[in-house]
Deep mutational scan, measured.
Amino acid sequence: MGFKLLSKLLVYLTASIMAIASPLAFSVDSSGEYPTVSEIPVGEVRLYQIADGVWSHIATQSFDGAVYPSNGLIVRDGDELLLIDTAWGAKNTAALLAEIEKQIGLPVTRAVSTHFHDDRVGGVDVLRAAGVATYASPSTRRLAEVEGNEIPTHSLEGLSSSGDAVRFGPVELFYPGAAHSTDNLIVYVPSASVLYGGCAIYELSRTSAGNVADADLAEWPTSIERIQQHYPEAQFVIPGHGLPGGLDLLKHTTNVVKAHTNRSVVE
């Protein structure tokens, strides 16, 4: 069995187990497998329904001669939608809004960016022009300005110390501490036991640490421990890039980060 097929099978099995364990909360999309990078042309966006009122959005972007996937989250909030992270750029984010209108038909009224990198804030200006209120932590807003990236308009308070959590509509926002970046936030959907790890969490097929220019490698494993301790009931975990899975993604990420750190020390 090929690795790609095995990865998709694991996603399907995880979703099936969740649907059985929580039949009222989960209505997993039966329309197909989780979209992969090879299936999404740059400039297009796919939506994948995880649970009743919960979707991931998947886009792709060219970077350094390669094409990478990027995940975000959409959560229903009454007759409105909360968006977590842009679709990595203005063109993708405009396509995301169009796809949401086509498939869901509810307005996106608020959006949260989970850290300051372009795959999370690139497209904020498109959201703002569409009347979406954009939010991020003060740290993310400051770092985005320093980096020359787009800056969300509103500040999220109460997320300055490791372990801080605040309720934001249908989700809980959690600051686990520094990891992929010093400002990275985690998003949890309690009604569906869905954990969105953003770039602080890796997919299972990833074996290298990737972009760690703004990471705190020493603190990252401790931050992941905080996530595990705060959300032990999480059933569906979405990484910032690639295929979702279960809580095993947290341990896998820790292993990859520690291996990278150990290699760096040896070198």
Rank of each mutant, 00 (worst) to 15 (best):
L106A: 09
G53Y: 07
N184L: 00
L73E: 01
A218D: 13
L106G: 04
E80Q: 11
F168Y: 06
L81I: 12
T93C: 00
D85Q: 00
S137Q: 08
A95N: 13
V45T: 06
H180T: 00
A165T: 12
Y135N: 03
S70Q: 03
V265T: 11
P152D: 00
L83Y: 00
P170N: 15
T36Q: 12
D79G: 11
T253D: 01
E203S: 07
H230Y: 09
I104D: 00
D119G: 04
H57I: 00
R110T: 09
R76L: 12
L249S: 05
F3K: 15
T153K: 10
T222L: 13
S181A: 07
S38F: 12
P170G: 06
A111D: 02
V257K: 01
Q103C: 08
S161G: 13
N211S: 12
F116H: 06
L159R: 02
V75K: 02
A15K: 13
R263V: 14
S161Y: 11
S162W: 09
G78E: 11
V28K: 08
G246E: 08
L83N: 00
V126Q: 07
T207I: 12
A98S: 13
R76F: 04
R110D: 02
Y188K: 01
K258L: 11
T182F: 15
W55L: 02
G242T: 05
K251Q: 15
D214A: 08
L195P: 05
E33A: 10
R76V: 09
A234V: 09
V265K: 12
V11D: 11
R226E: 04
S191D: 13
S208Q: 11
G89R: 01
N255Q: 10
S16Y: 14
S208D: 13
L249N: 03
A215Y: 05
L10D: 15
A218I: 11
G72L: 02
F174M: 13
Q103M: 13
Y196E: 01
P69T: 15
P170C: 03
I201L: 10
H180L: 05
G32C: 06
T254P: 05
I151C: 03
A209D: 06
I186Y: 01
E157Q: 12
Q49D: 10
Y202E: 04
S139T: 13
T207V: 13
S137P: 07
T36S: 12
H260F: 08
I40C: 05
K102V: 13
A136R: 04
V266I: 08
G53T: 12
T254S: 14
A130P: 06
I40T: 11
L217E: 06
A213G: 11
T114H: 00
A94S: 14
T253C: 01
Y48F: 14
A94T: 14
E267P: 12
V256A: 06
V146P: 06
S161R: 14
L96A: 01
T222W: 11
G197N: 05
E157R: 11
A66L: 13
L127C: 00
R141I: 12
F26Q: 15
R142D: 12
N211V: 10
A144P: 05
S30N: 12
